[in-house]
């Protein structure tokens, strides 16, 4: 097994035990080898993707996904190089919860994106269609991630996309949350550009958008 694979397994096990101290040691040891931040970022995303997949296939819980994301976000912070020049920082990414104050899903994705080197703007929760559209237009957002909990809010994404286009924005819209999990075609019906099934998937979708791709 390659060193990275071993580290992935170690870190995954530690995160699932919600063991911040041990996870910090793994981060430190891994980074100390060659002081390569990109490798550390890669390790983090690999682990969070495995954990996200584990949730999707029913092996892991949402609380484990959340706690893992938060721990990684905290730990990676101190390794981020100063004055980093990265393509990731050129993209304006925002995330918000539509019509709901349940913000766990948003927090998970936010943490994973931060851990993956992105710097998303947090629009908050309980947003109306008008509020999320206005902020996206005003801040010239390139990628908008919308989290929802209930079906009526998920269906309102269609209105968000319409109004964004009317306002001249070509922002890519990535959706997530329970309604999209329970109806796997819903993201297309509301004219979103992609379904971010979990934080790591959302991160990979953003990466593919940067390369000019789209979700199939």
């Amino acid at each position: 097994m390659a060193a990275i694979d071993l580290a992935v397994e170690d870190l995954k096990t530690t995160l699932l035990q919600i063991n911040r101290i041990e996870a910090a040691k793994i981060f430190k040891n891994f980074y100390e080898k060659d002081k390569n931040f990109e490798m550390l970022e890669h390790l983090t995303i690999e682990v969070l993707e495995k954990i996200g997949d584990g949730w999707e296939n029913g092996q892991l819980s949402l609380s484990q996904v959340y706690m893992s994301g938060v721990i990684c976000e905290e730990l990676i912070e101190k390794y981020i190089p100063k004055n980093i020049v990265s393509d990731k920082n050129e993209l304006k990414i925002a995330i918000g919860v539509l019509q709901d104050h349940h913000s766990l899903g948003k927090r998970i994705v936010y943490s994973v994106l931060k851990a993956g080197g992105y710097d998303p703007v947090d629009f908050g929760q309980g947003l109306t269609v008008e509020e999320i559209v206005a902020r996206t237009l005003k801040e010239e957002i390139d990628i908008l991630l919308i989290s929802t909990l209930m079906l009526p809010s998920a269906l309102k994404v269609k209105k968000v996309v319409e109004r964004l286009r009317d306002g001249g924005s070509s922002a890519k819209v990535i959706v997530g949350g329970a309604p999209f999990r329970l109806d796997s075609n819903l993201w297309e019906k509301v004219n979103a550009d992609a379904d971010g099934k979990n934080g790591a998937k959302a991160s990979k979708i953003i990466e593919s958008f940067m390369k000019g791709g789209k979700q199939s």
Binding site: Y66, M67, S103
Partner: peptide, 15 residues
């Protein structure tokens, strides 16, 4: 408590 205190804070309580 998910509605009383919010999910994130509640997980902090649980753990």
């Amino acid at each position: 408590p998910v509605m009383q205190i919010g999910f994130e804070k509640y997980l902090e309580l649980i753990y």
